[in-house]
Amino acid sequence: MVKKQRIINMSSLNFWGFILLLLLSIFSYSAKENLKLGIVKNISAAMLFPLEKTINFTVNTFSLHKKNSELRKEIALISLEIQRCENIKRENKILRELYGFKPMMDFNLIPCEIIGKNPGLYNKSLIIDGGFEDNIDKNMAVISADGLVGKIIETTQKSSEVLTLYNINSFVSAIDLRSRVPGIIKWKRERFLIFDDVPLHSDIKVGDTLLTSGMGGVFPKGIFIGKVIKVQESPKEIVMRITIQPFFDFNLLEEVFVITEGTNTSLISLSKTDTVRVSMINLDMFKKIKETQNFYISFSENKKPKINLLKNINH
């Protein structure tokens, strides 16, 4: 059954080819941050992605009818929810202005198509068809229609790599929408994510929704991440073991949105274009604010400018 031969024949061409390729692999691993693989990535994506799409399409076709009726129902519910949210948003904006809070940012979204997925067991990442040509930069948050997907970790001219939540290097600061309990979202090669660093007996229940907390500065506050599906408490441990099902499905993702800098329609900084509007404010008020920079101008619903002084100014 077993032939008596040496496993490794050091004089063969294969052996030296192997050594050469191994050195190339080691070099690639050690110099991975400096390697520019934009074109190679685009070629590989062009080769693999149509095939992936076909396989996904074939698999999804079987469940298409059921999914279609579910989605129709969901759209009806979401339409109602959007109308309700619009009213709440307007109220919230007015209340924030009354309290003198900095108004919430509106996100700028850049739609991108996924052109590649990394099948790694420990590091699932995506390649999208937007790069620095489209104003996409490192550390920008990436979302899908369902919720947070990850962040940009590398950009080339026309493509970018997204570190998804299904990656052992991914850590997202999150809070519970209901109880406001904070924690960190991690992945440890399981089917679902975990909500870690939550002390025992914290108020977390199955069905709770988790949002980004805005801590760390990468992910804007308030993006939906996932739902709590399991809560375990063991007296031997100091933290709870909470399992999260993310709202996005890695396998079904086809397009994502990159969040670039937020825009703010009500908070206006002074610039040459705003001079005319500022001059419309009465002269006394203008004299009062002239000596300080501690103010901001907002516009009410009927587009009239309003100057807001910060409270610690003594005039």
Binding site: F18, S25, S28, Y29, L37, N123, I153, E161, N169
Partner: peptide, 24 residues
């Protein structure tokens, strides 16, 4: 080598790891 390369190409955090392991 090339299977590992195709796996690693979309993974800048561990580029070269599968290439080396699958090669061996």
């Amino acid at each position: 080598f090339f299977s590992g390369f195709l796996c690693d190409i979309f993974n800048s955090t561990h580029f070269g790891l599968n290439m080396g392991l699958f090669l061996i």
